[in-house]
Amino acid sequence: MINFGSVLRRGLEAGVAAGLASALVIWLFVEPVIRKALVIEERRGASGGHGGHAGHSALFTVPAAPGHVPAHGGDLVTRTQQVVGGAVTSMLVGIAFGVIFAVVFAKARHRLAPHSDFWRSMVLAAIGFGAVTLLPAIVIPANPPAVGDPATVTQRTWLYVLALLLGVAIALTVPMLDRLLARRGFLDGARWSVDVLVTVLAVVAVVVVLPGSPDSVPEDVPAALLWDFRVASLAQLATMWVVLGAVFGLLMERSTGASARTADTAGERELTSVGA
């Protein structure tokens, strides 16, 4: 039996790699769009329009100093600190995802269909991407600075969390359904068809039933900027999942590879005895 501690260590290593990769994608693709959005915010402040964000938190407000442009960060931190802080944050997020991924992988390994740990890891990463990244992103898409009404942030946060939890619920329920159908003697093709159909219907139901974002996008934010930001945000999150799945899978292969390859050709029972 594989020791959980060694699985966790691989999860941490893969998490560091995923965090580094996503920090790189933020720096290359997300930051340029954020810079454009901050220019829009500053223009608003200068023209006395929306006045930027006086306070942008769910739970407290910070009054804007009179005559001062309340650009992002204000006097609290510089833009450089925000950019570095963003990279550090994505590292921390990658490590946290690595830990969670390792625990879920260890728990679900024997149920993941592929015959190698690399592909098991990739399948789990794909499920994770769909459940906790793509579904919330479709229900309530990412927005750059200059979009987002501070008054609705609590409502939007609950919507986001709800979409994420429903995504996880679908990811847990469909495999249970699959096993139930397998016990009832459904043929593989019929079973997989039911799995796909139920998944699609559940996702559509979540997207249709949950309300969209209550905010309207301000007129001075170009549609192209919004699109660029959402694509960049998804690219960053997809990068994180792909690197997490691939690095974790490769690290698992490296340890179990030698014994697993010979055992795989010799049959599954052989591998069980090797692993035990």
Partner: peptide, 15 residues
């Protein structure tokens, strides 16, 4: 403010 850019990038509702 320090996590600001990553919060936007991650798509969590920020403000």
């Amino acid at each position: 403010e320090l996590t600001h850019d990553a919060r936007h990038a991650l798509g969590v509702p920020c403000h």
